[in-house]
Amino acid sequence: MSHSFGRTRWKRFAAVLVPSVAAAAALGVGMAEGALAASFLISGRTFQISADTLKVRGLSIYGMVDVTRKGTPVPVTVTGFRHAEISGLCQSVVVPIPVIGPYTLRLTGGEGDRVEARNMFIDSKALSIGQAEFEDIETGVAAGAVDKGPINPGDRHSRYFDPDGIAQQARSADLTDVQVTAVAVTAATLNVPDLTMRLKQGSRECF
């Protein structure tokens, strides 16, 4: 049974129900044209992503368990979208260096023209959104029945993917003031104008 809510505005969402800003994390991810490869082993460390705005067509949200190289399971919320446009994109990773202390690798893009991404997925631990507007949203759909947004092929074939598990999907979403803590991102294609990378001493994260 379909539960469509039309166009809905919500100020804040619980992490499992809010679309993560998948596109924003894409700066540090290897990508390839066409279908995504199988899921990879994650490092287990988190990184920060922020975006001024994110416009999504074809959204999906579902629970998953990633695995580190040492075999440690890491529960995450996966958000996928077929197409996205992002402005004011930032990604940051703090790297502790013995003796001299922490350094921050910070990447930015989309200050002029918007970043565009296709078939992108973000595996997140936490997120915050200042304002969100969904069109044709459905909550409680079975993960195996999601059709408005994509399911990562690597996740679909994982033993941790539950086709009967609860998921959320929407035809489109407009998000502003996005902040997300992520562990992994994959994408089929990504176009990043105004890409800048800086390495600075100390903790200089996106938020």
Rank of each mutant, 00 (worst) to 15 (best):
R159H: 08
G202K: 08
E33W: 04
D147K: 03
E85V: 04
V94T: 11
R171S: 13
S39H: 00
D177C: 07
G130I: 05
A132T: 01
R45Q: 13
T53S: 09
R118C: 10
P102M: 08
I129P: 01
E116W: 03
S2W: 04
H157R: 14
S87M: 12
E33P: 08
R9F: 13
K125G: 15
A22N: 09
K11R: 13
S43F: 10
K55M: 13
R118W: 01
K125P: 05
I129G: 07
A117D: 09
S172M: 03
G140E: 07
D164W: 06
S2M: 04
R7F: 09
L59I: 00
G149Y: 07
L41W: 01
S203E: 15
A23R: 04
A38P: 06
A143K: 02
G63Y: 01
T46A: 14
L107C: 13
A188R: 06
E133M: 04
E138Y: 01
V78E: 05
V65E: 15
T181G: 13
L190V: 15
L27W: 01
I137C: 02
A182N: 04
V76E: 10
S60T: 01
Q169L: 09
L59E: 00
T46G: 12
S4Y: 07
G202S: 11
G110I: 02
D136K: 03
A170W: 03
A32L: 04
P102A: 08
L36G: 10
D147R: 03
A25N: 15
G110V: 05
R114I: 03
T108S: 14
N191M: 10
H157S: 14
A117G: 14
T72Q: 11
V185E: 09
I122M: 10
A143H: 00
A170Q: 01
L41K: 11
G88L: 04
V178E: 08
Y103M: 13
Q169R: 03
L17V: 00
M64L: 13
G165W: 01
N191P: 05
T181L: 14
P19D: 12
L199R: 06
M197V: 05
A37F: 11
S92A: 15
C206M: 12
R69L: 15
G63T: 11
K200C: 11
V18C: 07
V95A: 08
N191C: 00
L54R: 00
A187C: 01
A26S: 14
E85L: 12
R198Y: 02
I49Q: 14
F5R: 07
V185M: 10
V93E: 05
I129N: 03
V78Y: 02
I42G: 14
G112W: 00
E205A: 07
Q179C: 11
S39G: 07
R106E: 03
L36H: 06
V21G: 12
Q168S: 14
Q179S: 12
A145G: 09
I42L: 09
I100P: 01
N119V: 11
R204W: 09
I61H: 02
T8R: 00
T72R: 12
T196F: 07
V74Y: 05
D52F: 02
M197W: 02
F81P: 06
L175T: 04
A126E: 14
A184M: 07
R69S: 15
D136T: 10
